[in-house]
């Protein structure tokens, strides 16, 4: 069975992660309920004739994907796989509201055709003139994780060598208000801002200098805290590891009551591992965990942990293996193992 290596990872987030070479050096504190990502100047990357129909998700996706390909020195991937929780929600809201406002009259097609979930993936393929395998997952907070599962399968089964994967979600304007309104009714709701972003990566069967290995990934639909501990131990065992093999854990704490999952995992299994959190910096959204994938890759490559993500004291040893754990409201759990080669 072939290994799966990460040749590049690029992220647009609510921090300056796209344009800056610094690794989360000067972070921005977000004290608002919602926050947009920090956009690059899209006009520098997308021709006006192509950009005129694109909303934020498509722009973020296309630009991030192209940079990921560039860093990996890849012109044409063998597959492009995208994950998105809400899809192109801006155009969805736009078309929906014009139906309601105009009572189904004088509607134009642009926002409808751009509203489908596969628009980002399609526009990446269109820009590259890439006829290869093209897939879009939309499975709540496992949308990005599904792209990794598909990509790993394509590589392991030798159906593809170089694969572009990514997760992207945009904030939109209306639906997010309703979601936040419901969240505000929770006794211990999400504390970090609602946000957006795009993370793309090139995965490959070829080992490169400094490449990081995607060792394993698994997803669990629903489980209690106690079951998660057992499932995590089993996941590590399948990969010939135990809790002591993990040097750092990256957790998806967002301040809500379900952070208890992370707390129990950290204290009961990984008291000696370096503990990293990130959602206070980039916010919460369906594909926020793709940022953790970017973060984990960078930590392993740079052997450095930015102070604003470090949650406990840093041990003075090298970081060879990182575990990512994310969940949402006690559902949509995912474990991802990244390793240096």
């Amino acid at each position: 069975m072939r290994n799966c290596y990460i040749h590049s990872a690029v992220s647009i987030s609510a921090q300056n992660t796209f344009a800056s070479e610094d690794f989360l050096l000067d972070v921005i504190a977000h004290n608002t309920k919602k926050t947009q990502a920090i956009y690059p100047n899209f006009k520098d990357f997308i021709a006006p004739i192509a950009a005129r129909r694109m909303q934020t998700a498509v722009k973020m996706g296309v630009v991030t994907a192209n940079k990921a390909l560039q860093i990996a020195e890849l012109n044409q991937p063998d597959a492009i796989i995208t994950g998105t929780g809400m899809g192109c929600i801006t155009d969805t809201e736009k078309f929906l509201n014009s139906i309601i406002t105009n009572n189904e009259a004088y509607l134009t097609p642009t926002s409808f055709i751009q509203s489908t979930h596969n628009t980002v993936c399609a526009q990446i393929a269109l820009g590259l003139k890439c006829n290869a395998f093209n897939n879009t997952y939309t499975h709540g907070n496992l949308s990005f994780e599904s792209t990794l599962i598909d990509a790993q399968l394509l590589i392991q089964q030798q159906e593809a060598k170089h694969i572009l994967v990514g997760g992207v979600d945009e904030l939109g304007t209306e639906f997010v208000e309703y979601v936040q309104m419901m969240e505000a009714k929770e006794s211990k709701g999400i504390k970090v801002p609602f946000s957006e972003g795009a993370t793309f990566a090139v995965l490959s069967s070829e080992k490169k200098v400094n490449a990081i290995k995607l060792q394993a990934i698994t997803t669990i639909l629903e489980a209690s805290k106690e079951e998660i501990i057992l499932k995590l131990e089993a996941f590590l065992a399948v990969n010939d590891m135990d809790a002591n093999s993990i040097d750092a854990i990256i957790l998806g704490n967002n301040g809500d009551a379900y952070d208890a999952y992370y707390e129990l995992t950290a204290t009961s299994l990984f008291p000696h591992a370096v503990q990293i959190e990130y959602k206070h910096l980039i916010g919460e959204f369906h594909t926020a965990s793709a940022f953790a994938f970017w973060l984990g890759t960078k930590v392993l490559q740079k052997q450095h942990i930015p102070k604003d993500v470090l949650k406990n004291s840093r041990q003075n040893k090298s970081i060879k293996t990182v575990l990512l754990y994310n969940q949402f409201k006690g559902k949509d759990h995912s474990f991802i193992l990244l390793k240096t080669c």
Binding site: G87, T116, H117, T138, H139, L142, S146, L221, E222
Partner: peptide, 15 residues
């Protein structure tokens, strides 16, 4: 949930 599937599940949307 209705079918009792706990092992693996995902959703595809390619129009």
């Amino acid at each position: 949930k209705q079918l009792g599937i706990t092992e693996f599940s995902t959703t595809i949307s390619t129009a």
